[in-house]
Design a protein around this nucleic acid. Structure first.
Lengths: 337, 337
DNA sequence: GCGCATCATCGAAGCGCTTCGACACATCCC
DNA sequence: GGGATGTGTCGAAGCGCTTCGATGATGCGC
């Protein structure tokens, strides 16, 4: 492996000149810079990662804290991970994946060993332990999700789930629906302390109350047949239901859509359907669904950029909530009655 | 952050003594070691990753080359990733995730910058470019999948797909089936140069020929409805078909199982079904399927261990093929006729 | 009790990089 | 024309660790 002194020798300059040419932190004559760049190319020089870290510069590595939950939706999880990796690469950063079940030990470890410049945290809970760790270690960090009421003093980015809940109801109410069945995430999501479900529900309930909409909520588990059963319950509880609102993962949506068909109902003629905060492509479902997409890529991009801004010493804290946007795919119609 | 000299001072020994106590490369008196360990605990000392790298020791990081393909099955992909991470953690290793679309540039980069001690590569092709890179860089590496005829001189681990193909036919043939429909992976898998499909098919065809079994193969794409259509084609081509053999991802299996039901057929009474090299849990399907499970965890474990053995300087090259094992879940019965 | 292994510990070099201060030189203004 | 200012480059220190060789202490056999 070529070192910086090989480059310096080849270019006929000193080591520090090469370093400054690389970092751009001091002015270098164009001709000198050109010679250095030639040498770098010729020797296929790549800075030694360890040396760079040790000398107190950046590591060009970001940790991604991505705790796995047994009830989580693996494809969604993976989409987040790859979105973070893609964005990081665009800034010449690599990603160290902390994906064991233990959320905190990994962060603690990388923080203490100065292995990473910053952290991006997924699966953020309403009260997330990781907040304290990054604060104490003064480690640049961005949370995908909101910890605490107002971000607990760290950088958070998320879809505005509260507004998404309102928007979902608004969309259905504007189409004339008065009784809406809601298919939510498994109850374990709430138990685990995931904040977004609470926030979505709060928006949902507030808007429904304000507009006098009746909502019935079911939270099927991921067990086979549970989604279908939950839909049946919904219909039993309110036979006058004219719309189904999904706030759950793709397999549950697919199962319910099949059940709807099985019961001889058609979307949107007999029943309107709307997918809120969909982490999947609703246009490829058996029935393309109008939806509020989860802006997953955007969330990851903002998170990575926030973390990197903090690395550069720019204060980038605070909560950024992305406004929800509804997309019409024709699955919401006026109720017939 | 505490450094090694803080620890040395606290324990009343020299820096090198602390280092040797940590690495165990020289003998240290029990009492000295105890004092050092106390100091480490008290100061919450964690070695500086960069310093360790620079001093020529290990980085305790493994790169995971996990190229993403649009036609891949994200949950399976994610299971591989987490299995590698879990195993690595058990050896006190962290994982740097190289998951952009470009297989090779990531490996090249980490190799040149000495960022990682080794590489684990997923999604291995029949002729994988990454082989040359790790060989040239003398980078410890383990491939999950087989490159070339016999591993191209690098460490490879995989299910023995050829035997799996044979075993699948054997299982069905032993139950008395003479005409088998095969639902395979999308054609893009083969076009992309994925080796395991070829090897599975080779085993399949050889065994079928040897036993005089008729096989019809369909390779549905992931487009909605294509799996169902493919199954219909299978039935049209050979109405005397008594068994379906799956060598595809879960969503396709689910779709075909539904189609089977829709056509008024029952498994295993009317039609036997068998899932080969299943990366998913076949006991949770609508119809629990007898299967040859893909030993995903075992593959990842072996790969990580092989890479780490190479890091320690032990020669761990060569191909390790895991023998396939069939599990009976009652979805294969004797044909009725 | 002497020389000789063996054991436990230490000091110092060096890994490749960044960055600070210094320096030589050119440019500018009164 | 001389001091002030700015520009491009260099030398050297130091980041925290590993490891080699050296050294003092201990135990052994004869």
């Amino acid at each position: 492996m070529a070192t910086i002194s090989d480059v310096a020798r080849a270019a006929g300059v000193s080591i520090s000149t090469v370093s400054y040419a690389l970092s751009g932190k001091r002015t270098i004559t164009a001709s000198t810079r050109a010679r250095i760049e030639d040498a770098i190319r010729e020797l296929d020089y790549q800075p030694h990662a360890g040396a760079r870290m040790l000398a107190g510069a950046t590591t060009n590595i970001l940790a991604l804290s991505a705790p796995i939950h047994t009830d989580g939706h693996l494809p969604t999880h993976m989409r987040f991970v790859t979105a973070v990796v893609d964005t990081a690469r665009r800034y010449d950063y690599d990603v160290l994946l902390l994906a064991t079940d233990d959320d905190v030990s990994g962060i603690r470890r990388v923080a203490a060993s100065s292995l990473v410049d910053g952290v991006v945290a997924m699966g953020v809970k309403a009260h997330d332990e990781r907040v304290e760790i990054v604060k104490r270690a003064a480690l640049p960090a961005a949370f995908i999700g909101v910890s605490g009421e107002h971000g607990d003093g760290v950088a958070c980015v998320d879809l505005d789930f509260e507004r998404a809940g309102r928007l979902a109801i608004t969309t259905l109410a504007d189409a004339g629906h008065r009784t809406v069945g809601v298919v939510g995430h498994p109850p374990t999501y709430l138990e685990r302390g995931t904040g977004f479900v609470q926030r979505f529900n709060a928006g949902l309930e507030a808007e429904a109350a304000a507009r006098g909409i009746r909502i019935d909520v079911v939270s099927p588990t991921l067990a086979r047949g549970d989604a279908e059963r939950a839909f049946d319950d919904l219909l039993d509880a309110s036979p006058e239901m004219t719309a189904v609102l999904f706030h759950c993962n793709e397999p549950v949506v697919e199962a319910v859509l099949r059940r709807i068909r099985e019961r001889g109902l058609e979307v949107p003629t007999d029943l309107s359907a709307f997918a809120a905060c969909a982490s999947y492509d609703t246009s490829h479902l058996a029935v393309p669904l109008s939806s509020i997409p989860l802006p997953l890529d955007q969330m990851c991009r903002i998170a990575v950029e926030s973390a990197l801004r903090q690395v550069r010493g720019v204060d980038a804290l605070g909560v950024e909530l992305i406004p929800p946007v509804a997309e019409d795919r024709g699955s919401v119609a006026r109720p017939r009655r």
